[in-house]
Amino acid sequence: MKVVANIYLKAGVLDPQGKAVHHGLDALGFDGVKDVRVGKQIVIELDKQDEQEALEEVKQMCEKLLANTVIENYEVEVKK
């Protein structure tokens, strides 16, 4: 089973990369862009059948290593 962890800087933490991408989009003429946040996606293949168990395991991974919870939030989902 594949589980996806999406990791972003928390709301309120200034995202320098997101800001730079936002400027780039403005320069290209994409108007109406309100906000851009750049994060990372980590795809983990697990030897598990139970979805809940797999999600719980990846949450633990996020807490311990994949995310820095001082400045980052994470979301996990099973990749269908």
């Binding site: 800087l9 933490v13 200034l14 320098p16 990369q17 730079a20 820095n68 001082v70 400045i71």
Partner: peptide
């Protein structure tokens, strides 16, 4: 040291990248 929580806080990319 920040990642180890021996010191408080975290580092982000430089503002100008």
């Amino acid at each position: 040291l920040l990642e180890s929580h021996l010191l408080p806080g975290a580092m982000k990319r430089n503002e100008n990248l």
